[in-house]
Amino acid sequence: MLKETEIDRFLLMLADYGIKSENEFADSFFGEYEGNEDDVLQQFVQDWCALAKGCLPKQLLKQNDSAKLWHELIQFDFHRFVFNGNTYFFKRNY
């Protein structure tokens, strides 16, 4: 359970990324993953590819590793930050 001060810190972090209202949060939130290591990034990229339309993301995933896809392509569409041991992904354009 989060304390009020932790909630306030989380809201301030969101505001730093331009997310200031409930609607902006709902529109931009992509996912929360436990941890902050490479396995989180790998799971996120797999989830992103599964939800993306068309065959291109699946072909990219087969041809590249998750870290390379993140650095060369996906990071430009998402904010990623770690808070209290969890990694959060928010869409930059919503």
Rank of each mutant, 00 (worst) to 15 (best):
Q42K: 13
G35M: 05
D39F: 08
I74G: 08
A67S: 13
F29A: 00
K68W: 03
L73F: 15
D38T: 01
A50S: 15
K68A: 00
Y33C: 09
L56N: 11
D39V: 01
W70Q: 04
Q75S: 08
Q46C: 04
A50G: 12
A50D: 13
G31F: 00
G31M: 02
Q43H: 03
D38P: 01
G35F: 04
D27G: 01
L56Q: 11
S28P: 01
L56P: 01
L61A: 14
E34P: 05
K58A: 03
Q59K: 13
Q63W: 09
A67R: 15
C55T: 15
D47Y: 02
D27H: 00
L73R: 07
A67M: 13
V45D: 11
E34I: 03
K58G: 09
I74D: 01
L60F: 04
S28T: 01
D39P: 02
E37R: 12
A52Y: 08
L69V: 04
A67K: 15
N64T: 11
L69S: 14
S28M: 00
V40H: 02
K53I: 11
K62H: 09
S66M: 02
A52Q: 12
G31Q: 01
D65C: 15
L69P: 14
V40Q: 05
L73A: 15
F29Y: 05
V40D: 08
N64S: 14
Q75G: 04
K68R: 15
E32T: 08
D39I: 03
L73S: 06
K68N: 10
K53F: 08
L56S: 10
